[in-house]
């Protein structure tokens, strides 16, 4: 069964069609990449899945269940984790608190218990702390910065903390919005390794938006190409890569040989 099914979703803002009858199927346990030029509607699709935008038409199914009517927090509670394109960490908190916040939907502590820090509050806080240390910090190699305020961290580490926060939720589906944008080569390689590990060790299904073709071609199982709010191609990475329509849409030119070379070049560079 597919983990996520976006079924004929249309979304428009004051006459501009951000998504036009888009259908995307994300198979369980795989990495699905969403590519396309800027403004193609990739992040809009993410927002429609997260519940931040309400599509005018179409449905979103998560593990076979129609979640179109659910609000953001309810969708998160079902196990849809996410990172953001323009790092959305909570600047007033430490790394540890940011990551703990990711575990919010897995905990139940009520106000009364929280005020006295007794019973459930004490139990849950200790428990998620241990889990985060064991599962997330060790895995992403950020245990040394747990008490640092996030605002002071370098960009690459901030991206990693964001991934940590998403993982603390123990998601079943992880939406990654440009996980390696703006990173140097070494950081990109680290991040690619983490993503593959998340898929293999944690068994999390991943849907990711990414501009770095090398990374997309290397790690994804399935690729969807979006242009002007429509899916123009989909399939295995190598099929999509060879699709002339994709090359034209993505790079907006018809000099196919140079472009093929550039696509290959990028993938070698990464």
């Amino acid at each position: 069964m597919s983990t996520l099914e976006v079924d004929n979703v249309s979304l428009s803002f004051g006459g501009v069609n951000a998504l036009n009858a888009v259908s995307v199927t994300v198979e369980a346990g795989g990495i699905t990449a969403l590519i396309g030029p800027n403004g193609a509607g990739k992040t809009s699709l993410f927002n429609a899945v997260s519940g931040f935008y309400r599509p005018q038409a179409g449905r979103v199914l998560f593990e076979g269940r129609d979640i179109s009517a659910l609000r953001c927090p309810q969708r998160a509670a079902l196990g849809i984790g996410r990172t953001f394109q323009n790092i959305a960490l909570f600047r007033g908190m430490t790394v540890l608190d940011n990551v703990k916040l990711g575990a919010h939907v897995r905990t139940r502590t009520g106000l009364f218990s929280a005020l006295w820090y007794l019973g459930r509050a004490r139990r849950e806080e200790t428990q998620i702390r241990e889990q985060i240390e064991r599962e997330v910090f060790d895995f992403l190699e950020i245990d040394h910065i747990r008490r640092h305020p996030v605002a002071a961290l370098p960009y690459g580490l901030q991206k990693r903390v964001e991934l940590a926060r998403a993982l603390a939720m123990r998601p079943r589906l992880l939406l990654l919005d440009e996980p390696v944008a703006g990173m140097n080569r070494e950081e990109k390689e680290d991040m690619a390794r983490f993503i593959l590990d998340v898929k293999e060790q944690w068994g999390v299904t991943i849907l990711m938006v990414e501009h770095d073709m090398g990374m997309v071609m290397d790690i994804s199982d399935q690729v969807y190409v979006l242009n002007f709010g429509q899916v123009i191609a989909s399939g295995r990475p190598e099929t999509v890569q060879a699709n002339p329509e994709v090359i034209e849409a993505y790079l907006g030119t018809d000099d196919m040989t140079t472009l093929r070379r550039r696509l290959r070049g990028e993938s070698e560079a990464a």
């Binding site: 927090p73 909570f90 908190m93 608190d97 919010h104 820090y117 806080e125 939720m169």
Partner: peptide
């Protein structure tokens, strides 16, 4: 005590970035 727990963290998250907090599961 409140700010050692999930409730306090939710408050701060709302202050820092309310929409992201909502996407991460905080009921605003």
């Amino acid at each position: 005590n409140l700010f050692r727990t999930r409730i306090g963290r939710a408050f701060i998250a709302i202050r820092d970035r309310d929409i992201s907090a909502s996407v991460l599961g905080i009921d605003l």
